[in-house]
């Protein structure tokens, strides 16, 4: 299945891309996806699926848009 991955803020410089489609096996979890794109597990982050917060153990579906952001706190 294909999911769209968007990296926000400085994470894009760490992983080397800002947004792309990825082919992943069915039943891939959010956590497995983050491992695949080499976002460090210990890095504080917010992950959303289609604009809503998602837990690491949740399974992805075809066509999902996953956004990974640092935890912004100000502005």
């Amino acid at each position: 299945m294909t999911v769209r991955v968007k990296l926000i803020g400085p994470l894009m410089y760490e992983t080397g891309f800002s947004e792309k489609d990825l082919d992943v096996p069915a039943a891939t979890t959010v956590e497995a996806l983050l491992d695949l794109i080499a976002v460090p597990r210990q890095r504080p982050k917010i992950v959303t699926r289609n604009g809503r917060a998602v837990a690491p153990e949740e399974h992805l579906s075809d066509g999902d848009k996953i956004a990974v952001s640092p935890i912004y706190s100000g502005g």
Binding site: G9, P10, T48, S69, P70, Y72
Partner: peptide, 20 residues
Amino acid sequence: KSGWSKQSTNGVLAWCNEVA
């Protein structure tokens, strides 16, 4: 190390767009 000031406060714009 965090890379925050590469985009500074405007890093959050993409997140705001993502979460409506």
